[in-house]
Amino acid sequence: MSDRVDECRKDLNNLKRYANEIDKTLDAVDAASGTDTWRGPAADRFRSEWNGRRKAIHDALDAARGQYNKILQRVQDEEYKKRSGAAN
């Protein structure tokens, strides 16, 4: 396996780890802004806005996670083509 593939795999694993950390943070914001902890017009306004923003963030994280295998495969294919071309 090439250094480039190893580096890509490491970067993608970091991406997954950071995405999981962001998910945990989203859950923490949900808990901190729940109706049991925060009431009133500002809380209602925040929760209303937060729901849309949370969904957008979560969708972006899911999309990034979904690209993991595609990106890794592309890098592996490029490295294979490079090695095959160099061998000819």
Rank of each mutant, 00 (worst) to 15 (best):
V5G: 06
L72M: 10
Q67C: 04
I57A: 06
S2V: 06
N20Y: 03
D36K: 02
N88Y: 09
A32W: 01
A63T: 03
R54T: 01
N69K: 15
A60R: 15
D77Y: 06
F46K: 00
W38P: 01
G85M: 13
A43T: 03
E7A: 09
T37W: 00
D27M: 14
K82A: 15
N88E: 08
R4G: 02
W38D: 02
E79Q: 12
K82R: 15
I71K: 11
A43S: 11
I71R: 12
A56E: 10
N14C: 01
N69L: 08
H58T: 08
K24T: 03
V75H: 12
D36S: 06
A60E: 11
E79S: 05
T37H: 00
R39L: 04
L26V: 10
F46R: 00
S33V: 11
C8A: 15
R45F: 07
D6M: 06
K82F: 13
V5F: 14
D11N: 09
D62H: 14
S33E: 05
D36P: 00
D36H: 01
R53N: 04
D59K: 15
C8F: 08
W38F: 07
A31V: 13
I71W: 08
I22R: 14
A86I: 10
Q76V: 15
Q76Y: 11
R17C: 00
A31D: 09
D36Q: 02
L26R: 14
N51H: 09
A32Y: 02
D30P: 05
W50S: 01
Q73W: 03
S48R: 02
K16M: 02
I71P: 00
A31E: 14
S48Q: 08
A60H: 13
V75M: 08
T35G: 05
I22S: 02
D62W: 13
D77E: 14
K70H: 12
R45I: 07
K16E: 01
A56G: 12
T25G: 06
D3W: 10
Q67T: 03
D62I: 08
A42F: 06
